[in-house]
Design a binder for these strands. Sequence first.
DNA 1: CATGTTACCGATACCGGTACCGTTATCATG
DNA 2: CATGATAACGGTACCGGTATCGGTAACATG
Lengths: 333, 333
Amino acid sequence: MRRSTLEEVAALAGVSKMTASRALRGASDVAPETGERVRQAAKSLSYVGNRLALSLSSQRTNLVAVVVPSMSNTVFPEVLSGITTGLEGSGMQAVFGISDYDTDKERDIIRDMLSWQPSAIIVTGLDQPEETVRMLKLADIPVIQLMDLDGTPVDFNVGLSHGDAGRDMAVALLAAGRKKIAYVGSALEKDLRAVKRKSAFAKVLAAQGLAFAAEQLDDDFSSIALGKRLTTRLIAAKPDIDCIYYSNDDMAAGGLFACMEHGIAVPSQIVLAGFNGLDLTDSLPAPIATSKSPRRAMGEAAARLITDAMANGGVSGPKTIVFKPPIIGLGVA
Amino acid sequence: MRRSTLEEVAALAGVSKMTASRALRGASDVAPETGERVRQAAKSLSYVGNRLALSLSSQRTNLVAVVVPSMSNTVFPEVLSGITTGLEGSGMQAVFGISDYDTDKERDIIRDMLSWQPSAIIVTGLDQPEETVRMLKLADIPVIQLMDLDGTPVDFNVGLSHGDAGRDMAVALLAAGRKKIAYVGSALEKDLRAVKRKSAFAKVLAAQGLAFAAEQLDDDFSSIALGKRLTTRLIAAKPDIDCIYYSNDDMAAGGLFACMEHGIAVPSQIVLAGFNGLDLTDSLPAPIATSKSPRRAMGEAAARLITDAMANGGVSGPKTIVFKPPIIGLGVA
DNA sequence: CATGTTACCGATACCGGTACCGTTATCATG
DNA sequence: CATGATAACGGTACCGGTATCGGTAACATG
């Protein structure tokens, strides 16, 4: 019992392939009665259709390639979720790839994705190496770079400025009276956006004649457990700090748990600050400050950009969509 | 500057399409010098290749379709991550779809995925409606049903018994001396596996002449915030309980935060129990009991099943892979 | 020197659809 | 009744690759 083809459906309905094709696509130029016969035949054969043939023949696919660096914290799954809901009803299909924060792997994945002739491609960040950028340009489809704005986009750009986010957080924490600020980060050699936040933050400190009072770094990827571990180490080494800036919320949440374990009052004694605004943060037993990045919204914006471009047969609005993450969890900001 | 085709590469290298094809695939039957010339031509044209044509012609794809119900808590992203790493190096490519716990949507997504002629398909759970099962059977490719074992699989089956998990947790909690056990759950009309855990749990209670001392349910999907809210409500209504079984760890973590806020000692006064064994759980300021489900491992097992089936040209080992989630966070179990 | 072998390459026929154009039948119109 | 318009359908040529078979040249072999 093999997969049946359009030809078989057509034969069963007593028409030509062409008519069957038209009927199943709901096109005109088909007599109602004939159309019904074809649909019956298709159903009785459980005909499914072959998108490979469809796309090869019609020279268009409904594919949107999406490349994200990771799946291990919730941020990218949420972005993906936003993309798929944004694509819903448009007939587009998102295809995902995970690069593990590895630029070589990212290049290979993008190449592989492009070979499926997608109608658009969404990649994370603006820091692709030149070779990857060349491939993206050559693909001659809408390219959307997501999450980050600090750099030169290939084409479309949707995201937020991580530099601004780091700067704003530093300003807010200083305004809240914090002076001895430490930094806790993970996998900074991979997570370029965290680096951007950190250095913008440091720049604000420097402008006030300050610097990070201490640092704890690790090569592992961010996690609550790692945040807890590094924070424990940090407060042992440098007990007199009054604030910790983390590379993200996972780390900060772990930091909170470490503080609770060591009887450190948050936020009165030490203020903890992260990035992302994970749902987690507003259920925590003590507040942590964070920049609330609109992950779903960015995904949906990217999706809308694509559906628009497909519909209008080209660009209509601006090529860059800017989000500004508000700082929450700091009481009066 | 259009996308170049194999034909153009061949022309530039001064050979036929066929030879170019062979050269780029690294096949034999090509003189080393000719191969080099073709590769040069391909590179100079930034040739990418058209997988649509490749797959249509060769009648095989490197696609593995994966359908999961959600992306909003970390469990499915972790499973996906396991699948992609398990597929790594095999040349297979995972394609994801999200069904939002909606069986109709799941059917449509599966149909759509099948139209891409994937080499295998992974779906979540065993509770697909008949029509969906029929489609899966007709696809005539390896079908893997993931996460759950309680039911009749279409083909391959990788997962754990949620009935057993619920039962074991009930037994463990009773053995720990808990008597007044409440239940807190979310979206039970959608999350069939949570229902299986709950009813197996309830059955154990019933066998001891017990029943849930209280219940808090909600239609929303699970989240830490929801767990916190429902738990707050629960302990207000029924302060004398000594244990809460949650539909999963997100809810339980929220429950913990609620308890902390109300000065309830965990686990001495109330034991909290969830399901999944999220990484989060072992950094929490107080222990919560949970069944540690091997999410990555299940994904990888499914992937390996597929790569094996592709390599051996058929089935080799058993069609069912059983995982047994250990209970952690209960001190002496 | 005739006859394999082997290495390398090309022609042709698909794969399963759609685009495009042409054909036929039917019917209204002048 | 010839003509044109329109509706419904079919034929053919692709889309960009690969499978398959066959051909040619170079070389070894008896």
